[in-house]
C-alpha cells in the first residue's frame, strides 16, 4: 500500500467511527448509515488524495457533487477527518440550526456544492458545472459526482449520461457506489441494472469497474488520463466495516442503539489494529 493510500485508509477508519457517533446521536430518528459506510472508502480517497480544496482561488477547487444526498453524513465525516469541519460541528449533526443536515444542503464555502435528497439530479448539475467551467477556461477543476446504484434507476441519470458524452466533458467523473441494495431490497431483485459498467460505456463514457473498498484502485482510476467522461462503478458492501450492518437492507436507514454502537466501535478498533 502506498503512503497516500495508507493515509486515506486512516481517514476512512476515522470516518467510520464518526458515522457511528452521528448515527448514535440521531437515535430513534435513524440515519442512512448503510450507504454512508459503503461510500466511506471512496470518499476517503477523494478527500485524502484527489479533491483539491487548497487552491488560492476558490473558483479553481474541484467540485464534489453528492448526488446520493441521503448519505451526506459520510462527507461530513471526511471533512472532519481532514480538518474541514470541527468535532463540535460534527456533534451538531441534524440539529435544527446546524449546516450538517441529514440530506445534503448547499453550502458552497464548505464544498457542499448543491442540495440533494431527491435522487437522480446530481449528474445533470455536474454536466452544467462542467460546461460552465469549460466556458470559463477552467481546465484545473474536476467535477466528481457520487451516485448510488439504486439511484441509477432514475431516468434522469441516463439523460445526463448522454449529455456528458455528447458534450465531451472529460473533466467530469461519476462514481457509482454500487452496494447492490436499496430501501426495499437488493437492486437485482427490485429493478436489475444488468451490466452497469457496460451501460456507462454504451453511453459513451470511459467505464471501469473496481472494488470500491480498494482505496488504491479508486485513486489510480481517478488519476488515469481520459479523453472521455469517466464512470467508475465501485463495487461496495452496504454497511462496510460493521459486521451486523454489512449487506443488510435494514441498515439503509437504521436506528443505532448504545450497545450496538459499542460493539461496532470495538469492531472498528480491532480492524484498525490489523
Amino acid at each position: 500500500m502506498t503512503e497516500e493510500a495508507r493515509k486515506c485508509k486512516n481517514i476512512a477508519s476515522g470516518m467510520r467511527a464518526d458515522l457511528l457517533r452521528m448515527a448514535l446521536k440521531a437515535g430513534s430518528g435513524g440515519a442512512h448509515i448503510g450507504g454512508a459506510l459503503s461510500a466511506t472508502d471512496i470518499i476517503a480517497a477523494l478527500y485524502g488524495a484527489i479533491l483539491d480544496y487548497d487552491r488560492e482561488d476558490w473558483n479553481l477547487r474541484d467540485r464534489f457533487i453528492f448526488s446520493k444526498g441521503h448519505c451526506v453524513m459520510a462527507q461530513y465525516a471526511a471533512m472532519k477527518e481532514t480538518g474541514r469541519a470541527s468535532e463540535e460541528e460534527l456533534a451538531s449533526f441534524e440539529d435544527a440550526d446546524s449546516w450538517l443536515c441529514s440530506h445534503a444542503t448547499m453550502n458552497r464555502e464548505k464544498g457542499i456544492e448543491f442540495s440533494a435528497g431527491s435522487l437522480g439530479q446530481g449528474l445533470s448539475l455536474g454536466v452544467g458545472v462542467a460546461l460552465a467551467l469549460r466556458k470559463k477556461g477552467n481546465t484545473t477543476s474536476r467535477i466528481i459526482v457520487l451516485t448510488g446504484d439504486g439511484e441509477c434507476q432514475e431516468g434522469q441519470i441516463w439523460e445526463a449520461a448522454m449529455s456528458g458524452a455528447q458534450f465531451n466533458l472529460h473533466r467530469l467523473v461519476v462514481i457509482v457506489d454500487a452496494n447492490g441494495m436499496q430501501v426495499d431490497g437488493r437492486c437485482d431483485d427490485i429493478m436489475c441494472h444488468r451490466d452497469l459498467r457496460a451501460k456507462w460505456e454504451a453511453f459513451g463514457w470511459k467505464a471501469v469497474e473496481i472494488d470500491g473498498h480498494n482505496i488504491g484502485a479508486v485513486i489510480e482510476e481517478l488519476r488515469a488520463p481520459t479523453d472521455r467522461p469517466l464512470a467508475i462503478v465501485a463495487r461496495t458492501v452496504k454497511g462496510k466495516g460493521v459486521s451486523f450492518m454489512e449487506n443488510s437492507v435494514a441498515w439503509h436507514h437504521g436506528r443505532l442503539g448504545k450497545k450496538q454502537f459499542e460493539q461496532a466501535m470495538a469492531e472498528l478498533e480491532a480492524a484498525r489494529d490489523d
Partner: peptide, 9 residues
C-alpha cells in the same frame, strides 16, 4: 439540472 449547474457558476 444542466441549466442549474450553469447558473451555479
Amino acid at each position: 439540472g444542466v441549466s442549474a449547474g450553469l447558473a451555479s457558476e
